[in-house]
Design a protein around this nucleic acid. Structure first.
Length: 377
DNA sequence: AACACGTGGAA
DNA sequence: TTTCCAAGTGT
């Protein structure tokens, strides 16, 4: 047997201890984030939950100020559970995916009313709450309650598909990824008293956060810094040289451009607004009145679609359009402005709000753009 | 299973 | 400029 064969054999018999390498790396390089406890300390379930909801499909940078605002105003889940939904939507405005805010509030109410203000400490218990899906349930269980479970988010999907060169595209590969990700969990800690399944104490939360930090800082979507990766010796993707091509995923289709009109109607220093329906796009958020948004439509017919605004005499069409891109379609809105007489009543379902207090309204960013365009802000 | 659901930043 | 995407969930 040659020495190189012997080395290969040895490696096969004693593979790198990836869970341990991962935790050792995490102990040196973990990111300091507002919702994370100090090393070795138990995280606050409320802060873990709040951060996990905010971080869904959202960058750490964008979440920072929102997390600060929320925790300052509502220091615990009971406080949030006693807040009004409107207040929560106003605080969430601008973060996107507004059903998260709705579910966040519903979840806080459920924890307060059904669980005495204490978060369930099991994955199943968490999973039953509004807005908590399989990822978030596992993340909270692992990070806040030391449950030995591995949440799989986008970062972990990327790291794992590269590590094992999983060529099957998402989402079909999800079960395989989940299975392989779980092998990166460290062993149960010794000295446990008997424990139920999945109840073993471990550093599961650290293992999960290690994988996320690795994905965020080293195993990045483009140009991964493999030379700095604690798992690089054993990475199948890197061995093949095509690590950047993982994870594979089906191409996404682009939505068609939709157009519509928005009406910025002022009455002195007040603006005419309404609330969107609770379900659907921008659900429950505040908007200025407008036409429907249709693919292929020009704006000619827009005014005709706003019968409740027929009374307005003088419309002024602002030059240019407001462009916005949603996940599934781009949007262009033309903006009409008008100023109406002092005691003009708001049409049914609409209300006047002071321009001075606009910043505190539950406007999604699209509406902030529209209003800024219409008011020349 | 596939699609709806926001936004801003990076390359 | 365009494309991709960032700690997913609900239906």
């Amino acid at each position: 047997m040659t020495s190189s064969t012997a080395a290969k054999t040895r490696r096969r018999e004693a593979p790198a201890d990836r869970p341990a390498l991962l935790l050792a790396w995490y102990d040196r390089h973990r990111r300091r984030l507002p919702w994370r406890a100090a090393a070795g300390e138990r995280a606050d379930p409320y802060r873990v939950w709040l951060s996990e909801i905010m971080l869904q499909q959202t960058t750490v940078k964008a979440v920072g100020p929102y997390f600060e605002k929320f925790t300052s105003r509502w220091p615990d889940v009971s406080a949030l559970g006693r807040a009004s939904l409107d207040d929560v939507l106003r605080m969430w405005a601008g973060l996107g995916y507004y059903s998260r805010a709705r579910n966040l509030h519903a979840c806080a109410v459920a924890v307060l009313n059904d669980h005495g203000g204490i978060f369930p400490d099991t994955e199943d218990g968490l999973r039953a709450l509004p807005g908590i899906g399989p990822y978030t349930a596992a993340a909270i269980a692992a990070i806040a309650f030391d449950r030995r479970t591995m949440p799989v988010d986008g970062n972990i999907e990327r790291v794992v598909t590269r590590l094992y060169a999983i060529g099957e595209p998402l989402p079909q590969s999800k079960p395989r990824i989940q299975q392989m990700a779980a092998t990166l969990l460290g062993p149960s800690r010794a000295g446990d008293e008997k424990s139920r399944a999945g109840d073993e104490k471990s550093r599961a939360g650290d293992s999960a956060q290690a994988l996320m930090d690795l994905g965020a800082t080293i195993c990045t979507p483009k140009k991964p810094a493999c030379s700095l990766c604690p798992l690089n010796e054993d990475c199948a993707g890197r061995a093949r040289g095509d690590q950047e091509t993982f994870p594979r995923k089906a191409p996404k289709k682009n939505g068609m451009l939709r157009r519509g009109a928005a009406f910025v109607v002022t009455r002195g220093n007040e603006l005419l607004v309404r609330s969107r329906p609770e379900k659907g796009l921008l659900g429950g958020m505040t908007e200025v009145p407008g036409s429907e948004w249709r693919a292929g439509q020009q704006d000619k017919a827009a005014l005709a679609q706003a019968p409740e605004l027929k009374a307005v005499a003088r419309w002024h069409r602002k030059a240019g359009v407001v462009s916005h891109v949603f996940t599934h379609f781009p949007l262009e809105l033309v903006v009409y402005t008008a100023n109406v007489a002092a005691r003009t009543r708001a049409p049914d379902g609409m209300r006047w709000v002071a321009v001075a207090t606009l910043a505190g309204e539950a406007f999604p960013n699209l509406m902030r753009k529209v209003i800024a365009h219409g008011l020349d802000l």
